[in-house]
């Protein structure tokens, strides 16, 4: 991870330090300002890209069924693999796991076509805020950039959720701090965390709307085109809604047809994906097969980033 970076020249170092002493920053921000945050969700579930100024992080969540550890049979396992900086990732929220039904000894994992995948249960969303200290804690900057980090004495990272609970706190660097400085940072963090949480919620809501409509309609169209539609009466009849809510599948499908449908869905997804690629490059949906109906559903909302100043 540690690659040899080009060191800052003494001249530049002095310039940044003196600017900070004058309460000015290279990018024109105030000392306590955050950089612009942009959240973009990917086409697949569980993928998210966050840009904070020039720092860009991609998060991808995936899940699989495995045997739990023998010592903790009721707990799952969570692996986090970080390459480069750890920034709170709303990717967890978009990530979904397949629904599972346990009936006696029989465990059934429902494929996405059968039941809508469920969101992971996340207790709270910790957001990290970084503080940089200069001149033995005399000056304090929120959300330092790369260059500012190179000349700082040390930094403090506070992870906090919107309930004002501190989830992690770390001070690094060779500097001496006073308790008041730590408390002041945690107070600033409260404000920043509230802002960012709201931003993430907005982004998630946008995503949910875009996605709910898209997937719901996609399956509705595909199924209504290809299958005899006859709702099962003994189960709760939910129609299209059941797809959105992860309820039981209300479609009666015989095996042959199911195979066909599965194939169709795959091809639909493929053409969808490739159309997606096209539209990204040229804005052109150049494919007029019957599944084209699914492609016309706009993904603009999905890629429409929410911004915070």
């Amino acid at each position: 991870m540690k690659m040899r970076e080009t060191p800052l020249s003494n001249c530049e170092r002095d310039f940044i330090r003196s600017a900070i002493a004058d309460k000015k920053r290279l990018d024109g921000r105030q000392p306590y300002d955050y950089r612009k945050i942009k959240i973009t969700f990917g086409v697949d579930r569980g993928s998210c890209q966050v840009e904070i100024g020039e720092t860009r992080v991609l998060a991808q969540v995936s899940s699989e069924i495995t045997t739990p550890k023998q010592t903790r049979p009721s707990d799952g396992m969570l692996f986090i693999n970080v390459e480069l900086s750890p920034m709170a990732s709303p990717g967890f929220e978009v990530g979904r796991r397949p629904d599972v039904t346990v009936d006696g000894n029989e465990v059934k994992i429902h494929p996405v076509e059968e039941k809508d995948p469920l969101p992971l249960s996340v207790h709270h969303m910790p957001i990290c805020v970084t503080f940089a200290f200069y001149e033995q804690g005399k000056y304090l900057l929120v959300d330092p950039t790369d260059k500012e980090e190179k000349v700082m004495d040390g930094k403090m990272v506070v992870g906090m959720n919107k309930h004002r609970e501190i989830c992690s706190l770390q001070v690094t660097g060779q500097m001496l701090l006073l308790k008041d400085q730590v408390l002041r940072c945690s107070n600033i963090a409260v404000v920043k965390v509230t802002e960012i949480t709201e931003l993430i919620h907005n982004a998630l809501d946008n995503d949910r709307q875009a996605r709910g409509w898209e997937t719901g309609m996609q399956y509705f169209l595909v199924l209504s085109l290809l299958i005899r539609v006859s709702p099962v009466n003994e189960k709760k009849d939910k129609g299209v809604g059941s797809i959105g809510e992860g309820g039981p599948s209300a479609w009666e499908v015989d095996n042959e047809m199911e195979q066909e449908v599965a194939d169709e869905i795959q091809t639909v997804n493929k053409s969808d994906r490739s159309a997606e690629g096209n539209s990204r490059l040229s804005g052109n949906h150049g494919d007029d097969s019957e599944e084209e109906a699914t492609c016309t559903l706009s993904k603009d909302d999905l890629h429409n980033p929410t911004q915070l100043q």
């Binding site: 001070v171 701090l177 006073l178 963090a189």
Partner: peptide
Amino acid sequence: QIVFLEMNSRLHEDNL
């Protein structure tokens, strides 16, 4: 003066 500080698990800010 604090040379090193680290915290893990959840703690409300008021109690810090």
